[in-house]
Nucleic acid binder design. Structure first.
Length: 172
DNA sequence: AAGGCGATTGCCT
DNA sequence: GGCAATCGCCTTT
């Protein structure tokens, strides 16, 4: 199975969010490997009021303005780490895809905070290069997921731009 | 220097 | 369905 490269992430953020469904997130811890099949994502673009990068480049969101295929991680409500992959086309200054759920150890983990907990992802991975197989975290291509297997809904847990249908879920 | 708030979660009713 | 927990980040003084 092939590792996803820069080309995959250097496309329209919403399209990347859609295409990440069914991909395999690999988490290496020493010589142990955890595999996570991505089942839920959300897209956040630079011209989207709900995105952290909407306000422009700051110390917090600077990773989303950096190279695609790297990690953007933030703390939510002072408690939870949330994991995003920097993705955008060449015209956009910033953007990312939030990974909201996945299958780990044959078990579905829902919620971005729960997922980072299951994969031991934290702020130390901020900006990590994910398109390098020697990294602790990278993404492998999976089986092609048909459009009929992907459910599209508005994003959840946000107060702005609630109408954008930028949430993608693998149907059961 | 300080205040308000959030891309959340889990527990309580 | 409602809300408390909890703190880093951004804005305003």
């Amino acid at each position: 199975m092939k590792i996803l490269s820069k080309d995959f992430f250097q496309r329209d953020t919403v399209q990347v969010a859609r295409d990440l469904i069914g991909k395999k997130l690999i988490r290496k811890i020493n010589n142990q490997i955890i595999t996570c099949i991505i089942t839920e994502t959300e897209a956040y673009t630079h011209d989207d009021p709900a995105s952290h990068c909407y306000i422009g480049k700051t110390q917090r969101n600077i990773a989303m303005f950096g190279p695609v295929g790297h990690a953007y991680i933030y703390i939510s409500y002072g408690i939870h780490f949330c994991f995003n992959i920097v993705s955008r086309d060449l015209q956009s200054p910033a953007g990312g895809v939030l990974i909201r759920a996945g299958i780990v150890d044959n078990q579905i983990i829902t919620g971005p905070g729960n997922l980072t907990k299951a994969l031991s992802i934290n702020k130390s991975h901020y900006g990590l290069n994910l398109i390098d197989e020697s990294s602790e975290i990278y993404i492998l291509d999976g089986l092609q997921v048909e459009n009929s297997q992907v459910q599209i809904t508005p994003r959840i847990g946000i107060s702005k731009a609630k109408d954008k249908p930028w949430r993608f879920l693998l149907k059961k």
